[in-house]
Amino acid sequence: MIDFHLDTRSGVAPYLQLVHQVRDALRLGLLTPGDQLPTVKSVAGRLAINPNTVLKAYRELEHGGLVAARPGVGTFVTGRLTHASPAAHEGLRRELLVWLGEARASGLDDESIEALFRECHWSTQAEGAA
């Protein structure tokens, strides 16, 4: 089961953070169809956030066809966001870890690594758009 967390200083609305975390988990294969999301009560209780926020996030996910609420039972994952197989994921992940190791070895700090990643990411996106 997914474990939510919240960053109040990020400027991102709390419900969106929850949505993103579910989507990320779906992408990474941590959640697959049939899995149950934590109950609204447990999320609200654990994170000390308004249950309406959790409900809003779950409704948003439901709207996107990723989850479905079964009244009285809970909310379950119905959709997928992974296109590659988890095995492919694993390969990419290993490569990224290797790359991160090299980046650190060549003296980059965390901020530089993130900046580099963002820049590459943007440029590939720009290419895709062009």
Binding site: P14, V40, S42, A44, G45, A48, I49, P51, V54
Partner: peptide
């Protein structure tokens, strides 16, 4: 946490006062 759990469980309406908002932002 306890308050939010109760709100989720019982569907309570809550009014709470505060002179600071930062504590209450997420609830």
């Amino acid at each position: 946490q306890q308050l939010m759990e109760a709100v989720a469980e019982q569907g309570l309406s809550v009014i709470l006062s505060s002179h600071l908002v930062s504590d209450l932002e997420r609830v």
